[in-house]
Design a protein around this nucleic acid. Structure first.
Lengths: 200, 200
DNA sequence: ACGTTTGTGGTACGTTCGTATCACAAAGAC
DNA sequence: GTCTTTGTGATACGAACGTACCACAAACGT
């Protein structure tokens, strides 16, 4: 009974199924059949909407990146209307921390994709450079803004802080992911480091 | 012509072959046959010295962790005899950065193992908690030592700095690994952050 | 000297994977 | 009202994977 179908939506549903299945058994272990079962469709349909597994994986990565972007902007705007730079920066940095199941998935799968991209050149061309670069320039701009308003201490190197804080956030996220630390203490550490560069 | 063989050494050789093969095509893509070929032995022998692939992977992880530990202590002692805490800390933090091919491999495979450990409980019991915890307490002790000698600024929270710096080092390592940043600039960022907590 | 252990090769088995093929029904085009 | 496109199912195929099995020779124990 083939009604006309919205390809974009179907692809999104399947990509979401990929994400869920990958979350349970790991991205490396997920196959076309698992994705099909998770999405409640036949193997053939996964093949139909994505010609190959590689295409599926690439789309899954972009899907994940998109959802993550939405999450970050949602977090930032939840910081209130016209929040100070400090609040925005804090929202930005803590958005990457695995505090709930959704962000755990993000972190886990992004890391999986990132490490895959080291040996897979098709993946290497994907958002692993552009997205962090965007985050870096956004954060740099926010810090500059804070510096201009006199909110920052005088001797801070804005760029070095942006790079360092993002790296710290990512590193803390990983340590939370593997269970070494809980999200609460990671947030505390992040806040401490922000306190140290902002004017008291 | 079976001469008596040193099992420990043979296992180490095979584990090293695993590391090399995994570095080329990714840990997820490495099979027993690849390891055998890389080590220049037959598939049967890999089976003989490691009963299963899982055992091989576990041993490979421990092998990697061991080599990394050696590398760190080598780096630290290369900082000179009786170096200041600052030099030791810098050596510690920069040892994790992918500056050469060997450390690139470390970082790539450790990350692979770490993300595997999220969904594989046999791997989760491995050094992903104890090793970073050891690094954390070592770094905390070094910072305390520096604080007691008046080398640190007065208002630094030693534990929060230790956690933050280690996370930053790991995060910077990943960004170097995926090619977003080069090792030089990562080192610069790390040094800047050390400069900010040490007394001028 | 003989029997047992130890190291090694070759190879076969069952499974799973990604992909390809064949068939066919419902919906739109004209 | 045909005819073509579009969506879907079932299934087959070849490759690769981890593992198991069989055979055998060198070394060691006694």
């Amino acid at each position: 009974m083939p009604k006309r179908v919205d390809h974009a939506q179907r692809r999104t549903e399947i990509a979401e199924a990929l994400v869920q299945a990958a979350g349970r058994h790991g991205l490396h272990a997920v196959g076309m059949r698992d994705v099909a079962a998770e999405a409640g469709v036949s193997l053939r349909l996964v093949q139909y909407y994505f010609e190959s597994k590689e295409k599926l994986l690439l789309f899954g990565l972009r899907h994940l990146a998109g959802k993550f972007g939405e999450r970050v902007t949602a977090r930032v705007s939840a910081a209130g209307d016209d929040p100070g730079p400090r609040a925005v920066i804090e929202a930005l940095l803590t958005a990457a921390l695995p505090v709930d199941e959704e962000s755990r998935l993000f972190h886990q799968l992004f890391t999986s994709y990132a490490v895959l991209s080291v040996t897979d050149e098709a993946l290497a061309a994907q958002p692993f450079i552009t997205d962090p670069d965007a985050a870096e320039s956004t954060l740099t701009a926010l810090l500059h803004q804070a510096a201009d308003t006199g909110l920052l201490q005088a001797d801070v190197d804005v760029h070095a802080e942006a790079v360092g804080l993002l790296a710290m956030s990512a590193g803390l996220g990983t340590s939370v992911l593997v269970g070494q630390r809980d999200a609460q203490s990671a947030t505390t550490v992040l806040r401490y480091h922000l306190d140290r560069i902002f004017q008291t």
